[in-house]
């Protein structure tokens, strides 16, 4: 494949199939990094998919499914790209890895809980991903930059959706405020892990977005929403983390069992 065969400008439709067909094979390090971002998005998509036909309003069924679809699209692009390094497809990676091989941050595998807990998780996830993709669109790696540029526009909407619900639930009724605060209490311990640098991200300067460098933007944009919600920035427990090393909370196993069951019943089959 020639070096010029893969050119994607910002805003062009950019799919997992494009990546699988046209991207250059990534280095082992880049693939491991792409796998992290792909797993974050995949696990979040899987969680949000549960809400279909369970949301509080029809409009919310549409919105949550839309967000799930966007996340699934990002996951497919990142996993397809990572897979090129190991001769694996997106489906090999999604369906035939065990729990300890998943490298998503633990935030994404936290349960849906009630609608407020889902919104708390969305709030953190979308503000994090917004900062991440904003930086990653300037990556020296053209494929990561192109995926990030497309994802950024979509995640901007996810962020707005989460902010709008944060406001409504925080300032709506006593009951909604009580639930919103409880949702944040459950989710916030998993924020810290998102911003930890490690050996892998240190080795990809100019290619990966250093997690620690995203914290300032995240704190600034979330603090503005908390102020409007008349909520103190949550403090309290900090979970130990380890998702990036394949260490997970007790929820991921259930999620994977469900996600992978049919594919694993028919190894070698295509769908």
């Amino acid at each position: 494949m020639s070096e010029t065969s893969f050119q994607v400008s910002v805003g062009e439709a950019f799919t997992a199939e494009d990546v699988a067909e046209a991207a250059e094979k990534p280095t082992e390090q880049v693939a491991r990094y792409a796998l992290r971002l792909g797993d974050d998005a995949l696990i979040l998509a899987q969680q949000l998919g549960w809400w279909v036909a369970r949301a509080p309003e029809l409009e919310e069924d549409v919105a949550l499914t839309n967000i799930a679809l966007d996340q699934l699209g990002h996951a497919r692009a990142f996993l397809s790209y990572a897979g090129l390094a190991w001769g694996k497809t997106e489906d090999d990676l999604a369906y035939f890895r065990g729990e300890s091989e998943f490298v998503n941050a633990q935030l994404f595998e936290q349960p849906n809980g009630d609608f407020a807990q889902t919104i708390a998780r969305q709030f953190v996830a979308s503000h994090f991903q917004f900062e991440l993709y904003r930086q990653l669109q300037g990556s020296a790696n053209a494929t990561l930059a192109a995926i990030a540029a497309k994802a950024l526009k979509e995640v901007d909407y996810h962020r707005d959706h989460a902010d709008q619900w944060m406001l409504r639930l925080s300032l709506g009724t006593d009951e909604s405020r009580r639930r919103m605060l409880r949702g944040l209490e459950v989710i916030w311990p998993f924020v810290e892990e998102l911003f930890r640098d490690d050996e892998l991200t240190d080795s990809l300067k100019g290619v990966a977005a250093a997690p620690s460098s995203l914290l300032e933007g995240f704190e600034k944009s979330t603090a503005a929403v908390f102020a409007r919600c008349e909520i103190e920035i949550p403090a309290g427990f900090v979970a130990r983390g380890g998702g990036r090393l394949g260490q997970h909370t007790e929820f991921l196993g259930h999620l994977l069992a469900e996600m992978q069951v049919l594919a694993r019943e028919h190894p070698g089959a295509t769908w």
């Binding site: 997992a16 995949l42 998509a45 998919g49 279909v52 036909a53 069924d61 549409v62 499914t65 839309n66 799930a68 679809l69 699934l72 699209g73 996951a75 497919r76 996993l79 997106e90 489906d91 999604a94 369906y95 469900e258 996600m259 069951v261 049919l262 594919a263 028919h266 089959a269 295509t270 769908w271």
Partner: peptide, 16 residues
């Protein structure tokens, strides 16, 4: 439980 990510995406879009 859709058995491939592509099928999962199509199914989600359909239900939406």
């Amino acid at each position: 439980r859709a058995p491939s990510l592509k099928r999962k995406a199509i199914l989600m879009a359909k239900v939406q």
